[in-house]
Design a protein around this nucleic acid. Structure first.
Lengths: 335, 335
DNA sequence: CCTGGTTTCTACAACGTTGTAACCCGTGCT
DNA sequence: AGCACGGGTTACAACGTTGTAGAAACCAGG
C-alpha cells in the first residue's frame, strides 16, 4: 500500500534516481519524462519516506520548540507564532513540554528525538547557561530572560525596562503603596529578578522607598499562585493601592482575590500584569499589561535558527531584543 | 563529534551488532562484554540515530496530535494530558496546529512528516468522516464529537446529555428565558448541533418553549465571539435570565459583555459554559460548566492508538465515551 | 563526419541501524 | 570420541533515499 521510489520508477519506466530528481525538482529532466514520472507518482500516491531522506541528507525538516507548560497561555500563544513562522521556512515544529524540570530541559536540549530534529528553540526555566554549554552541538535558540550571556543565540525583551515602565505607569496614577507579586529567590527566577529590578528602579525614580513587605513571592506563576499571594498581601495588613504582577496569570489570580476581598479594581487597587495574554482582554476588569511582541519574538527565533542551520554554524552567539509596548486597560487605565 | 555504532564497536573491540544488541537490551550478551560496551557508549556519548533506526524498523516512536488551535485553552490542556499519557508509552508527541482548515487537517491526517509518525490523534473541525475514509492507513484516533460513525477509532463525551444536564441545572435555578450561544449551521458544527440538541431537550422536558430568538450563532468559539453574541442578545431585546454557552471561552466573552451592560451574574443572568478550562476557575464570577474528563480522554485516545499500533491494525473502529461532570460555580451556583 | 560541450539519464555506493543466518566454542550426553 | 545443544558473537544484507561519477544521447560548429 505504501510505495517507494522503486515502484514509481518501474511504473514510469525510468531509473530510481530520475524519479528522485523529479521529486526534488532537479532541472535537467526532459519534459515528457517528468510528466510520465509525475503521473506515476500521482497514481501510486507516492510520498517520500522522510526517515530515509533524513538518513541520507542529515536533515529532517523538523525543529523542536520546548516550553515549560503548554497550558500557560503565554507559551501557547508563542507556540502558535513559532509554528507559523517555521512553516514559512518549510519546517514542521515538534512541540515539547519540559514542565520546567532541569532533567526534561536537558533532555530536550540534547536532542529530543536524537537526530530527529535539526534545531531547537528552548524556553528554559531551570537550565543555566553553564548547563547548556556542556551540551553537544544541536543548533539552539533560547527564548526568555536568562541573564547570563550563554553559548547559544538568544531572543528576549528588555525585562528591566518593561517592568520599570509599567511600574512607573502605576506611579503616574498616583499610587504610592505599590506591591509586587511573583518574586523568586531560586536561580531559575531570572525573569523574576529582572522584573523586580525594574519595579525597584521605578520606585526609586519616583522617590518611593522600597518596602520588602509589599513584595510577595510566588513559586509558580499560575492563577492560583497569584490569588494566594494577593490574599497574603491583603491579610498581612500592608494595604497596597496597586499591584504589579510579574505575569498575567498571576494578575488574573490577584484580580480574583481582590474581588473576593470586596476591593474594587482599579479604584481601591490598580493591577498590572506582564505578557498580554488573550484572557486579559476579556477579564473583569480588563488587564493592563506589558505586551511583548510575540509574533516578532517567534519570527526572530526561527530566523536565528535558520541562520545557524544554513550558514555559519560556529558564528558567535547573537542576542536579539524584541520590542514590547504597554497595553493599558481597565485594571490600571491611562490617567 | 557525533558517533555511530561503529565507533563504539571499535572502541569496545566488538562487532557493530553486539553494540546494537546492548543498546536494545538483548538478553544474551556476556556481562563483561556488556560492561565494556556500555563504557564505550558513555565515553563517546553515543546516541542512536532515530532516523536510521526508523528506516530499519518502520517505527518512529513519535505520534502526532493535531488540534485546531493551540491557544484555545481547551486544546492546550488536552495537549498536556496527551503528552503525559504518551510519555508512559515511551512516545514523543508532535503537536500540529491545523487552524481548523480542511486542507491542513487533511495534510495532518495523511501523514504530517510522512513516515515520521507512527500514528495520529486528530481533533477534527472541518473534515468529515467521508474525507477521512479516503485517506491511506495511518493509524488514527479521532477526538471530539463528529456525529457520524467514521472509519477510525473515536473518543468523545456524550454532548447531548451533558448539554441537557447543564441546561436543566439552569432551569432548576428557576430560569425560564434561557439563551444559547454558539450555534452553527455549517456541516463542521457537529458539536454545536449536539449541544443545541441537548439544550432543546432540557427545555422541552421542563415544558419551556424553544425560542429561536434566544439562540445566538457564533462562527468561531473565541471570547470575542461570545461577547459579540451576548451583546447582540442584549440589544435585540429578548432579555434572557440565563445563558448556556457552548464552550467556556464563549462564556467568558459573555460574562464580559454582561458586565459591560451593567447586568449582574448570576442575579440578573446566570451563565454556564462547557469545557472546564482553567480560566473559568478564576474568572469573576467563576464559571459553571460541563467538565469533560480531559485526562481520561487523552489516556483513552493514546491507548486506542497503542492498540492500533501493536495489535490488530484492521480491527473494526471503536468508539469510547469518556465521562464528564458538572462543575457548578458562581455564575450559576447550586440552588 | 568528427569534435567538444551540454543535456538527460543511470548504476552504484553510502547514510546508521537491525533482522537473519551462521559461526565458534564450551557443556553434557551417549 | 562423537554429537547435539545453545549461549555468545559476528558478517551480511536490507530499509528508502540521494550524491557522485559517468554513460548515452543530443546539439552546434568546423
Amino acid at each position: 500500500m505504501r510505495h517507494r521510489l522503486k515502484d514509481v520508477a518501474e511504473r514510469a519506466g525510468v531509473s530510481v534516481k530520475t524519479v528522485s530528481n523529479v521529486v526534488n525538482g532537479y532541472q535537467h529532466v526532459r519534459a515528457d519524462t517528468r510528466a510520465r514520472v509525475e503521473e506515476a507518482i500521482a497514481e501510486l500516491h507516492y510520498r517520500p519516506n522522510l526517515s530515509a531522506r533524513n538518513l541520507r541528507k542529515g536533515r529532517t525538516g523538523v525543529i523542536a520548540l520546548a516550553v515549560p507548560e503548554l497550558d500557560i497561555p503565554y507559551f501557547a500563544e508563542l507556540a502558535r507564532h513559532v509554528v507559523a513562522a517555521a512553516a514559512e521556512h518549510g519546517w514542521t515544529v515538534l512541540i515539547d513540554q519540559t514542565s520546567g524540570g532541569p532533567e526534561q530541559e536537558r533532555k530536550a536540549a540534547s536532542g529530543i528525538g536524537d537526530h530527529m530534529i535539526d534545531g531547537l528553540i528552548l524556553s528554559p526555566l531551570a537550565l543555566t547557561a553553564d548547563d547548556l554549554a556542556g551540551l553537544d552541538g544541536l543548533p539552539m535558540v533560547l527564548l526568555g530572560e536568562r541573564v547570563d550571556h550563554g553559548p547559544a543565540d538568544h531572543v528576549m525583551i528588555d525585562n528591566v525596562a518593561a517592568a520599570r515602565e509599567i511600574t512607573a505607569h502605576l506611579v503616574g496614577l498616583g499610587r504610592r503603596r505599590i506591591a509586587a507579586i511573583g518574586s523568586q529567590r531560586t536561580p531559575e527566577g531570572a525573569s523574576a529578578r529582572l522584573r523586580l529590578e525594574g519595579y525597584a528602579a521605578a520606585l526609586a525614580e519616583a522617590g518611593i522607598g522600597y518596602d520588602d513587605s509589599l513584595v510577595a513571592p510566588a513559586s509558580a506563576w499560575h492563577r492560583a499562585d497569584g490569588a494566594a499571594a494577593m490574599r497574603h498581601l491583603l491579610t498581612s495588613g500592608v494595604r497596597p493601592d496597586a499591584v504589579f504582577c510579574f505575569n498575567d496569570t498571576l494578575a488574573l489570580g490577584a484580580l480574583r482575590a481582590l474581588h473576593e476581598a470586596g476591593l474594587r479594581v482599579p479604584d481601591d487597587v490598580a493591577v498590572a500584569g506582564f505578557d498580554d495574554i488573550e484572557d486579559g482582554r476579556f477579564s473583569i476588569p480588563t488587564l493592563s499589561t506589558v505586551a511583548p511582541d510575540k509574533e516578532r519574538i517567534a519570527r526572530l527565533a526561527v530566523e536565528l535558527l535558520a541562520g545557524r542551520l544554513t550558514a555559519d554554524r560556529d558564528a558567535p552567539p547573537r542576542e536579539l531584543v524584541a520590542p514590547y509596548r504597554l497595553s493599558l486597560r481597565e485594571s490600571a487605565p491611562r490617567p
